[in-house]
Design a protein around this nucleic acid. Structure first.
Lengths: 348, 348
DNA sequence: TTGAAAGCGCTAACAT
DNA sequence: ATGTTAGCGCTTTCAA
């Protein structure tokens, strides 16, 4: 089924796109005045205003922002560069961004890097070539080329998710090292001592890495080390959580706590434990990370640290939109303080 | 913490953005040739090529696509208009789109409508003003204004998710009426007769509505009607699923099947039933919709119909990118045939 | 309050 | 293989 070949109907759409000139001719007003009306700029008499608006509507004129942007050197686009769309984390950040931008006339352009520095660099190049009003980019670790571009961008740059390191310009996020430490502290305070870690095998997921580092550092200060680890890549996280939990407990049945690098695998582990009659949190404690909404509906609430995703998105968008209180312009570092929810899987 | 006031470092970024002219002067080659090199167009000697590339890299030149697009009348942006980012459904479609566009030099620009026709219209207007190479938009129902804009857009338009109705141009999706019928048929074939429905209270979610209509039509043909219904809005879907399930079963304990309008509330219902010792699927059957990955990790696999989200995104992107086999240009309607997975919650 | 002229930074089309 | 010219459709700036 293909499009009918040039069927010139009664209302055949114009081949050439409409321009200001078309509206100008139809309304008998100069292009300049039409432009003013359409942008609500400058003084225009009510009569002219009406004429122009009517003419524009009649022919279905849609302004050309390409030309407008070139002439005015202003672009209402914001580049958003994230590693992935395949788990809820980044869409939630994006939702926060989108929510705030909606009221500002700015539009997000999304680029996905799949955790590859090379892709990040090329996506960034692509975005900067649109001269966006701002860039929101996940993480603080970038290739040399990407860093140079961000430095020279000349627009607000907000690095999100992570504050463990120096930003190019502004940063909004949490300290993943602290989050790891915080979790370890709660686990140790509850008396658990034989601890295993389950996470993703992603060398370029710096935030997961930092959480684990913070976690291990806190253990080390208590004279402990991780007794076992299990890694995975890809697949249904909930299912992987089950499988990994079974595997690590089979190998190291003496463990009394499992720290998961995210809530989805943690939830899988929790379900597996419940089904297998393991005493949680009495004999085995569990904790995840992110504070995903899903946890609310599980039979027990998994212990977790909220990663403040939506709030991070909102704040990043506010910085780009110049809506920060006090009129602060850039160079802000907003480190949010995530709350640890002990839920029902750490004994008290 | 604010940006230091105009600290002119050793490598102060240029106030004026770099242009082709800068590269031209540095390399001693005309702007036109520089442009050719940077776009890999036309014949350029290897020597000049090197010179230009080096010069461009040295000063960190990033082309201005605004100007390029205006001059060439070509824009590598694709507008993607979706109702929401708050459940995995649309991010997954977006992931499919992004995946295919990555190899084509096209970039998605995302707009979110929150299921509001007015917002859809304004988001569409905004997008068309960038003269994108294509529009991907969820659903077949649009306001008069939106429809007129799509008709006149002059670029490929792909309406996704739904094929129950005439498209403006191309469409990729599934028939939600058929999906509803298909589910009803499986339920009836298994011998269930006293059926309840649980879903969202969203007047503008036409696809959920169509599934329910198809479902009820099939029941009617068997001389049955829905015996009870329960609706919700907002909140954690898994948690809502639990609450609604408890509520509907308290009110109508004689029900022998619950049809959920999506998998997340269905999963919540399933967990609730298991915890409350209800014999699933013996005494009570359950079914959801979407085929979300999450179901793989639950204690039982919920019956569901796969909504082919990622594939829909991929195909839509292929149409926009002109990559459809046979070189078909537009006006395609791709109705995918979703599979019903009976899982463990419909008795056999 | 309205209009005219001069570009914005690039590329199509046509030289050479 | 390289250069020249003339816009793309707007907005800025200045004039009336």
């Amino acid at each position: 089924m293909t499009r009918p070949p040039a069927k010139p109907g009664p209302k055949a759409p114009p081949r050439r796109a409409l321009t200001l000139r078309d509206v100008s001719e139809l309304s008998g007003v100069s292009e300049m005045t039409v432009s003013r009306v359409l942008r609500n700029r400058g003084d225009v008499s009510e009569a002219t205003r009406e004429k122009v608006l009517t003419a524009a509507r009649d022919i279905g004129y849609v302004p050309n922002k390409i030309a407008g942007a070139l002439a005015s050197q202003r672009v209402n686009l914001v580049g958003v560069i994230i590693p992935s769309l395949s788990n809820m984390v980044f869409p939630e950040v994006l939702a926060g961004i989108s929510e705030v931008l909606e009221d500002t006339g700015l539009q997000p352009v999304v680029g996905v890097t799949h955790y590859s520095p090379e892709r990040e660099e090329s996506v960034l190049y692509e975005m900067l070539s649109w001269r966006p009003s701002g860039i929101v980019i996940a993480g603080l670790e970038h290739s040399g080329g990407a860093r140079a571009m961000l430095d020279a961008a000349g627009v607000p740059v907000v690095e999100i998710m992570d504050t463990d390191g120096p930003p190019v310009d502004s940063a909004v996020g949490i300290s993943h090292r602290k989050a790891g430490r915080q979790t370890a502290a709660a686990i140790l305070a509850a008396g658990y001592r034989r601890i295993g870690f389950l996470g993703t095998k992603m060398p370029d997921d710096h935030r997961a890495r930092k959480r684990m580092e913070g976690f291990e550092a806190a253990l080390a200060e208590a004279g402990l080390v991780l007794e076992d680890r299990e890694f995975y890549a890809g697949g249904s996280a909930l299912l992987k959580g089950r499988e990994m939990t079974e595997a690590i407990l089979r190998r190291s049945p003496h463990l009394d706590f499992l720290y998961y690098s995210n809530d989805m695998i943690g939830a899988g582990g929790l379900l597996w434990c419940l089904e297998n009659g393991i005493d949680v949190p009495g004999k085995l404690g569990l904790a995840g990370f992110n504070g995903v909404e899903l946890l609310q509906g599980l039979p027990r609430r998994l212990a977790t640290v909220d990663s403040c995703r939506r709030e991070i998105g909102r704040l990043a968008a506010e910085i780009i939109a110049g809506k920060r209180p006090g009129g602060v312009i850039g160079g802000e570092v907003l480190e949010l303080s995530p709350v640890l929810h002990p839920g029902d899987t750490i004994r008290t």
